[in-house]
Amino acid sequence: MKLFSSRFKQVVAILRKDFLIGMRQRATFAAMMMFALTATASLSLSTGGAFVEPKFLAALLWVVIFFAASAGIAGTFDDEATAGTLPTLKLYADAQAILFGKMIYVFLSLVALTIFILPIFLILFDEPTENFLLLFTTIFLGLIGLAAAGTLTAALTTSATVKGGLFPILLFPVTLPIFLPAISLTEISFTSAAFDMSSLIMIAAFDSILITASSILYDYL
């Protein structure tokens, strides 16, 4: 219990520290937002206001989220490794506290990313969403898994000497069990068709497996 509470305090301290640095050094965050905006704009411009099938639109939304997230979270550990602070952090904080501190930070930045890009996306493609609750739940659950797998993947790629494009290559196959059901649920939320609860449950189940696995595997790093 004591161990748990001291880890919890470390998680909070790391989270607060990352926020402080994130606010002062806005480049990473700005790049992620601009990436999402650029991708959305280029897709919308190229379809020129023509009607886009909800199925296709749902896939586009997740593609935008995936690649913008990749741009934003690939450097989760790299920034500290480059600055030379990662060894210090690893010395003073528990490994699990570092992982979860970073994971929560990544999750919250992905939430911020979605809050920014989702309205723009829906307005530019003129998509009347029928079931907002389903859309939000799907995105919320999807982002949890993306943050869990993304944080571990970012830790793996930190030691790579060749980084260009490595992060999304590694992240994509691992997060497919999230994307496939999330895309069909998003499509349903656009059209208000009946949806299958088991898909939502499956994303949640995969989320918890990713969190558990990240936690176990990170100790071997």
Partner: peptide
Amino acid sequence: KVSAIYSLLSILTVPFLVFIIPRM
């Protein structure tokens, strides 16, 4: 170390994909 961790992370997707893909 890194590749072993990735190998184990990726195998977790198998049971889910086996379940999801035939439905989609």
